[in-house]
């Protein structure tokens, strides 16, 4: 029984000397309230999140085209087939390339820009608004806009030519060696501002006194940044990496709308592979198996990352107990 409840029951207790019935009634009432409050959310969550994932695991053991109930049990054959398929292997590789590039390229760029922008700046509020805009637009809109601009002879090519960079003009989306990097550039456009704002918020948490103290001790601006500011940004860096890697692993919309994973699978990702095989080619058992692999990858990464990198930061937020 909660202390609150006992306190709430106190006036009733003084009125009726026999405590038993009141308490039992309170207990039943509490259970009814709990069922009312928690029931709908739990039911919806369980149905869509837990049941759908469990069902995917079940379907993944069948060869099933989606018509009628699944009946041809094939065991682990779908998993073996996926892991042996060069297109799927390529998809996994592309997701990893995306994740590595985002940490190796986007992260330093984001931090550098945030450090430059931190401080007094006229029009800061406006800049925040502008920088955040691409994040608010849907991936579908972003994809269509860039698809138009990246057409051969389109705005990007013309822009490069007009500043004399003809040599940089490429088949942005048709060159199998380039397409993944083009998509990465578009995703950088969409998510850079979000990262900058995250880091600007993180920088507000670095006390000015620390930097002044370092400056008084004769540290140069660069030393102060490297030895004082960056270490204090640790939590922001860790959470940014987490979001960015999870985002890279489930990359779908940009790729699907701009290239459908092509040309010839050269920009396929795990998520586009799931939809292409499972949904478009009616291989629901096989698609489910690949979807299960996709969750497993995300799940293992998330758990490992939470365990090893995020623990201190989210203590209290995600794992905190309420008393």
């Amino acid at each position: 029984m909660s202390t609150v409840e006992e306190r709430a029951a106190a006036p009733a207790r003084s009125a009726t000397p026999s405590r038993g019935p009141v308490r039992r009634r309170t207990g039943r009432r509490t259970r009814a309230e709990l069922a009312l409050l928690l029931g709908p959310a739990l039911a919806l969550f369980a149905l869509f999140v837990l049941v759908s994932i469990a069902a995917a695991v079940y379907y993944s053991f069948f060869d099933w085209n989606g018509f009628g109930p699944p009946s041809r049990l094939v065991g682990l054959a779908n998993y073996r087939k996926a892991l042996a398929d060069p297109v799927f292997q390529g998809a996994v590789r592309h997701n990893l390339v995306f994740a590595v590039l985002s940490v190796a390229v986007q992260l330093p760029l984001t931090v550098a820009l945030a450090l430059l922008l931190n401080g007094r700046l006229r029009g800061r509020a406006l800049l925040r608004l502008i920088a955040f805009t691409p994040y608010v637009l849907s991936e579908a809109i972003t994809a269509v806009a860039w698809l138009v601009m990246l057409q051969p002879g389109g705005a990007v090519d013309r822009g490069l030519r007009s500043v004399g960079l003809d040599s940089l003009v490429h088949q942005w989306l048709a060159d199998p060696d380039l397409v993944l990097y083009t998509l990465f550039a578009v995703s950088t456009w969409k998510y850079l501002g979000f990262g900058i704002i995250l880091f600007l918020a993180g920088l507000q948490g670095v006390p000015m006194e620390l930097r002044e103290a370092a400056a008084l001790d004769g540290a140069s601006a660069w030393q102060t940044t490297r030895k004082v500011v960056l270490p204090l940004l640790g939590p922001t860096v860790r959470i940014w990496i987490f979001l960015s890697v999870i985002g890279s692993l489930q990359l779908f919309e940009l790729v699907w709308i701009m290239t459908l994973g092509g040309p010839a699978g050269s920009s396929a990702t795990m998520a586009t592979y799931v939809i292409d095989r499972g949904f478009r080619r009616y291989q629901f058992g096989y698609g489910s198996a690949v979807a299960v692999v996709l969750f497993a990858v995300c799940f293992v990464f998330a758990l490992a990352y939470q365990r090893f990198a995020l623990r201190r930061d989210t203590d209290g937020a995600l794992t905190g107990r309420v008393d």
Binding site: L47, A55, A291
Partner: peptide
Amino acid sequence: FRGREGVYTLFTAGLLFPLGVASLPVYLL
């Protein structure tokens, strides 16, 4: 109530399954 932290952990585990990775299963459901 008993199981409160368990229910909460269940919800937090849901953070690891965004709709983006579960769309085919949800479609089938």
